[in-house]
Each structure stands twice: as C-alpha cells, then as structure tokens.
C-alpha cells in the first residue's frame, strides 16, 4: 500500500512538472500550421538580438562566477576554519537576497550609484555592467555559498590546512592548491547555478537598462506567440546542460569519486 502511494506521489510529481513542459515544447513546435516544425527555434536563432543578448549575459555570468568564487570560497573557508561561531550570521546574510526582492536591491543601487553620487557607476556602460555584475553576485550568493559550504563539509578543512602549513604553504597556496581543487565540483555546481540565474534574470538588467537575455525574453514574449516557448525550451536546455556538466565533472574527477 505504502509502495503504491509512493509511486502515486512520484507519478503525480512527474506529471505536475513534465506536463507544462511537454505542452510548452509541443506548442513551440506548432508554428507551421498542421505539422510540427522547428520554425520558431529557427526564428529565434536567426534573430541577431538573441545572440547579442545571450553573449552579453554569458559574459556577465562569467564575471559573476569569478567574483562570486573569489568572494565566497575564501569567506566560507575562513568561517569554517576560524569563525565557526559566525556561521549562522553568514548564512543569514547569504539568505537575504532570497527575501529582499531584486527590485529593491536595484533601486538601492540606482540611488547609491547614480550620476550625482560619489561613485557614479550608472554614468557609463562599463560602470553599469560592473553594478549589474555585483547585483548578480548578490542574487547568486545563497546558491554559491551553500554549494561551496557543502563542498567544504566533505573535506577536513582544518587538518588539510595545518598539513599544508606544516609543509611551508601560505594562505594563498593553501586556498589555490588545496582547498579550491578539493571543492571544485561544489564550486562548479555553484557556478552553473549562477549561470542559470544570470541567463534568466530580468529585473536588474531591465531596470539598469542593459541588453541582457532576460529583457530580450520578455520583449519576445510580449510580441510573439511561438518564439517565447521556443526560447523557454532553449533556456531549459541550457540549465539542464549545466546540470549535466556538473555530473560529468564529478564523474571524471578521480578524487571526487573517492569521496562519493
């Protein structure tokens, strides 16, 4: 009886998630009347704005990942090593982006960094891109921090650090050669989650008036019928591709297999 209920719940869950996806995919293939085709996808790929915005978001995602890793890995490492009592505080801070809407953050940014402020970042495209990157880092913080922290939990941070120190290593060597390689899969999973967030993010990019992929999706959705679901399927494919890459990296990392 319990097995039947469990299978029932599983199937119910699958239908709940898959039916809309299947429906959306099917609709995206129906652009040509009476037959299935990839016309909507072709249209999307033929649109230069798709490549421009996607490329832009990809570059910003890369910058976000680099800044995020440089911020989160040393912080999570230091908290685990030296400030375990500060962990609840840090965890709370990293959760804030989930409870503070992106629109609040971006209005705060605009108010703080407008052209009449001390640091007029919104006054130039590069400045706004930097601001947007910082915003993305904030948005991705809960995911990146948790991913890295979980990775750090799988290794004996304190002993490995002491072992490296006893062999003459300084902090940068320890972080770069011992800690980072051992949490690489966790960092990569955080990075792929960041990529997925940045690719789909709308509010910040739209309010900062930057040509990102999120506003392009919104624009397309407002004016076309078949292209938006095609775009959504593409976005899903990118996200799932990222998940697959995480699995692939885990599988090919010898020492990670040992931890599993």
């Amino acid at each position: 009886m319990t097995r039947v209920l469990a299978w029932g719940a599983f199937l119910g869950g699958c239908l709940f998630f898959l039916l809309p996806l299947i429906g959306m995919t099917e609709f995206s293939l129906k652009m040509r009347r009476g037959e299935y085709s990839f016309d909507a996808y072709r249209r999307v790929f033929e649109d230069q704005r798709f490549w421009d915005t996607f490329g832009y978001s990809l570059i910003l995602a890369g910058a976000t990942i680099v800044v995020g890793v440089l911020l989160v890995v040393p912080t999570a490492y230091w908290v685990r090593l030296k400030l375990p009592q500060a962990r609840p505080v840090i965890e709370f801070i990293t959760l804030l982006p989930l409870v503070i809407p992106a629109i609040v953050i971006v209005f705060g940014y605009i108010r703080l960094y407008n052209t009449s402020s001390v640091l007029p970042l919104t006054g130039s495209a590069l400045g706004t891109d930097i601001l947007l990157t910082m915003g993305y880092v904030t948005l991705a913080l809960p995911y990146m921090y948790r991913a890295v922290d979980t990775g750090l939990r799988t290794i004996d941070v304190a002993t490995l650090t002491e072992a490296a120190q006893s062999l003459g290593a300084g902090w940068i060597t320890i972080l770069a050669r011992i800690i980072l390689p051992n949490v690489l899969v966790a960092v990569l999973s955080g990075a792929f989650l960041t990529l997925a967030i940045v690719i789909g993010e709308f509010t910040m990019a739209a309010l900062l008036n930057r040509p990102a992929f999120g506003p392009f999706m919104q624009l397309l959705g407002a004016n076309r019928a078949y292209e938006p679901p095609a775009l959504a399927v593409i976005a899903f494919a990118i996200t799932w591709g990222c998940m697959g890459l995480i699995q692939l990296v885990t599988r090919f990392s010898k020492h990670e297999r040992a931890k599993a």
Binding site: I155, D156, T159, L160, E162, A163, A164, Q165, S166, L167, G168, A169, G170, I178, N182, H255, A258, K259
Partner: peptide, 16 residues
C-alpha cells in the same frame, strides 16, 4: 610555515 617542521596527523591529512 616558517618553522621548518614536519608533521604527521592522526587523520593522515593527505591532499585528496
């Protein structure tokens, strides 16, 4: 890291 000591730990502490 300036003391030139060598250390062995209970938990081996080899770099995985």
């Amino acid at each position: 890291n300036q003391r030139a000591i060598g250390m062995m730990f209970q938990a081996y502490a080899l770099f995985p």
